[in-house]
């Protein structure tokens, strides 16, 4: 279990993270989402003891990372943004070095079996005796992941673990992380929103060093998506259609997309407070003799949620949650 209490990190006058508080339960996979420089890596670096916080406390399975760093670090496997690989070593030597560095209990038989199991999991068995310098970026990333798994730490902190992997490898690593989540507590950061959505139980969105949202994907969608959106493909005069639809009660805005066919446009209609305009739109089309070629409700994607939160107006989710607590 990880408990973060009022964590703040200042670099001079700038706050890299500002009063972060959250908890990660055992066996949970938490996703960190945020733009570059939002504070994801800083938070991860503090949790792993690489840097210290200016204020606040980080507890790793109840151990304060600042008070008992060695004890707390034994609980963590960390894959930083750039895998910390010694390029002059072979994969075998490197993993054995990490095994010794982490002071995993020395049992010759167990060591070989343990490293073999990890190499099998991250699929690097075929490059086990090769020098890391000669490996592709994808393999290096997987060796980095392997070193995080050495010693089977109960907590895994993975900073963008799928960077540099091809699509097939990304799917494999995602599946692996999902499986690791059954035995380990995992914190994962990524820029790939679909990855977070696919792998994580819960998401924390960080914006300018603050938690902008902290919830499951489903709840985030519900709490933020107060507006409904309807996409209608209609044949007719564009300006006339926009003007007429805007007059339907409950419509907040109408925008036309590019011309799909001659005289046919997609119209994105945003409505207020769950107003259902589908029937009114149909009747209007009949009255005006437009042809509706398609009509569908548009749900907010995680990308929409992320942009909405990080570009302002998204703190409601956090405040709402804080209020409940």
């Amino acid at each position: 279990m990880i408990e973060v209490k009022s964590l703040t990190k200042r670099y001079g006058a700038k706050k890299a993270i500002d009063n972060l508080s959250f908890t990660v339960e055992d066996g949970e996979i938490l996703g960190f989402l945020g733009a570059n420089g939002a504070g994801k890596s800083t938070t991860m670096n503090i949790l792993t003891g690489y840097i210290s916080s200016t204020e606040g406390q980080a507890l790793i399975n109840g151990i304060d990372i600042l008070d008992e760093p060695c004890k707390a670090k034994r609980e963590i496997g960390y894959l930083p943004e750039q895998p910390p690989l010694y390029l002059d070593m072979t994969v075998k030597d490197y993993l054995n070095f990490v095994y010794d560095l982490k002071k995993v209990k020395p049992q010759a038989q167990a060591r070989a079996a343990h490293l073999e199991e990890i190499c099998g999991l991250v699929k690097i068995t075929e490059v086990y005796n090769r020098i890391i310098r000669n490996l592709s970026k994808g393999y290096r990333q997987r060796v980095g992941l392997a070193q995080a798994l050495v010693g089977s730490p109960p907590i895994l902190i993975l900073d963008e673990p799928t960077v540099g992997l091809d699509p097939k490898q990304i799917i494999e690593i995602r599946t692996l992380i999902k499986n690791l989540g059954k035995k380990h507590t995992v914190i994962l950061s990524s820029h790939i929103l679909s990855e977070i959505q696919a792998v994580c139980d819960r998401i924390i969105i960080i914006s300018e060093g603050k938690i902008a949202a902290n919830d499951t994907t489903e709840n985030l969608t519900k709490s933020i998506s107060t507006d409904n959106r309807v996409i209608a493909r209609i044949e007719g005069g564009r300006d006339e259609i926009i003007g007429a639809i805007t007059q339907i009660p409950g419509v907040a805005s109408v925008t036309a997309d590019m011309e799909r066919e001659e005289g046919v446009y997609d119209y994105e209609i945003e409505t207020r407070e769950d107003a259902d305009i589908r029937r009114a739109l149909f009747n209007l089309a009949v009255e005006k003799e437009w042809v509706i070629l398609g009509l569908k409700a548009s749900e907010m994607t995680l990308e929409d949620i992320f942009l909405k939160i990080t570009m302002g107006g998204g703190f409601a989710a956090e405040e709402e949650k804080g209020g409940e607590e």
Partner: peptide, 14 residues
């Protein structure tokens, strides 16, 4: 420079 210090400084060693 290589950022391998992260390996050492996040390991359980003083």
């Amino acid at each position: 420079r290589q950022k391998t210090d992260q390996c050492l400084l996040t390991a359980p060693v003083s």
